[in-house]
């Protein structure tokens, strides 16, 4: 589903964020991307979401070479990808419902379909009944769950998350990870960047460790 072949990413400043990274994630796999900050975790996720392009090497998503996706084809590509951010990136001028509905509106879902899927997504993250609330009135953990609901509402094939528990206490963090596990159980490929090793050490999933832009360790496919 996700395949990196000898990928390099050098920024205009000269800093090399990734130096020859190769790995592949099968469909339905769940993996953590670990490593110290500055190791290139975010860069790797940004290459998957086509926010950045590799300097060298190939990134294949769903057997599609991302280098061949023109600027104009990026939007439909991103519609099939769920992305969760550390800072949620919720829009504070609209309700929880409208935030979760945004990718569905963009994809052109019918009104009924939007309502159904937004409710389903909010139900999955435990926020059903909060549709009309403003995101600002929710706790940080709840806001992150809204962010996750938005990412999964269009039923993406791949879900990537950059430090989704970065601002949360351990209990909330565990809840969030359980959520991701549940989505993975229904077939979604999940890749989560985190530096919280304590949180994930008891989880059975695969771990890819980045150090200074290189893949330093790969625990291999975890137990399903």
């Amino acid at each position: 589903m996700i395949r990196f072949e000898n990928v390099f990413k050098r920024y205009p400043s000269g800093r090399e964020a990734l130096s020859g990274v190769s790995f592949s994630l099968e469909r339905g796999e769940f993996a953590f991307l670990t490593g110290p900050s500055g190791a290139g975790k975010s860069t790797l996720l940004r290459l998957i979401a086509l926010i950045e392009r590799p300097t060298r090497g190939t990134v294949l998503i769903n057997n599609q070479n991302t280098a061949r996706i023109s600027r104009g084809r990026i939007p439909p590509f991103r519609q099939r990808l769920g992305v969760v951010f550390q800072d949620h990136k919720l829009l504070h001028d609209r309700s929880v419902f409208d935030n979760v509905a945004l990718p569905l509106v963009i994809a052109g879902a019918s009104r009924r379909e939007i309502e159904r899927r937004v409710r389903a997504a909010l139900d999955q993250v435990g926020l059903l009944g909060r549709e009309s609330h403003a995101p600002i009135t929710l706790s940080t953990g709840e806001q992150q769950r809204v962010g996750i609901a938005r990412a999964v509402a269009p039923r993406p094939d791949v879900l990537i998350a950059d430090e989704p528990t970065g601002n949360l206490d351990p209990d909330l963090s565990r809840e969030i990870m359980e959520l991701f596990t549940r989505f993975n159980e229904v077939g979604v490929t999940v890749l989560i960047a985190t530096h919280d090793l304590e949180l994930i050490e008891h989880l059975p999933h695969r771990q890819l460790k980045l150090v200074a832009g290189q893949l330093a360790a790969d625990s291999g496919r975890g137990d399903p």
Binding site: R78, K89, L90, L91, L102, I106
Partner: peptide
């Protein structure tokens, strides 16, 4: 955000 979730 709209660009990130696939807005053209």
């Amino acid at each position: 955000v709209v660009k990130l979730v696939g807005g053209s």
